[in-house]
Amino acid sequence: MLELFKKQKYVTVASDAGRREMPDGLWIKCPRCSEIRFARELEKTLKVCQKCGHHFRLTAGERIQFTLDEGTFTAYDADLEPVNPFHSTEYAQKLAAARQASGLAEAVVGGEGAIDGQRVVVVIMDAQFMMASMGTVAGEKITRAIERAAEKELPLIIFTASGGARMQEGVLSLMQMTKTVSALCRHSRRGLLYVTVLTDPTTGGVSASFAALGDIILAEPDALIGFAGPRVIEQTIRQKLPEGFQRAEFLRQHGFVDLVTPRPQLKAVLSRLLDLHRREQS
């Protein structure tokens, strides 16, 4: 029911992406500690439960609102629609339902904005849209955003989320891994900063491509991050996984994440990293 609580403050997101009325007085129950709070109140704490620290998943619109300076975001390629390469009716229906549920044309929102006045290209993956599975057009939007960042000599921040490949698009989906990494190589060769923020859940091909290649890798607390899904692993090894396996803190301990950053500090950390990589000072 989270989609009911989308903000309408940011206005520059393409079309009506993620905009919806938020009726006063609606409440949300924390899935972890069961604390019940008003949606508006939760919004003020950046959708982090005050009691237990649970980080609710964000929509692309909320991410923009919580991260970028107000009114600075301009979307790239907002009109780019998913393709249905094998003309599957099932898939067409799933896309239509995803669009209805999320108000987005694809799982990826890319664009340009500012963090404390510092210009940056951002890519946000919205798990509301088919669990942000990696489709051809999702990959294309990410690739184009990376290319624009390279052309404009801007730093890049990708907020990753993904349940895995968009299976309905077959190997085309898989190939987006190589396509995005190839674009990142070009961005990197120009000496530009690339930061990834791993959010819940970042799995499958996304985790094994651009998500893993940030110069600096941040993660939100308790985010599920892994290549294989926990259920697939449990089926393979025929035992239950320990508590905390494949969570952000686990990856930090194993050396695959630089920092686990609680959401209230995220903008400040990103801002400092951007500042430390300002080009004129070096």
């Binding site: 891994m177 190589c185 985790s207 094994a208 893993a212 290549f227 294989a228 393979t236 194993h254």
Partner: peptide, 24 residues
């Protein structure tokens, strides 16, 4: 790639991503 605990602990995502990047 093997979907097991050791593979995840030792960063299978990171290994595949860097392998792709290295080859590219």
């Amino acid at each position: 790639a093997y979907p097991g605990m050791g593979a995840e602990e030792r960063g299978i995502s990171n290994a595949i991503a860097e392998c792709i990047q290295t080859m590219l």
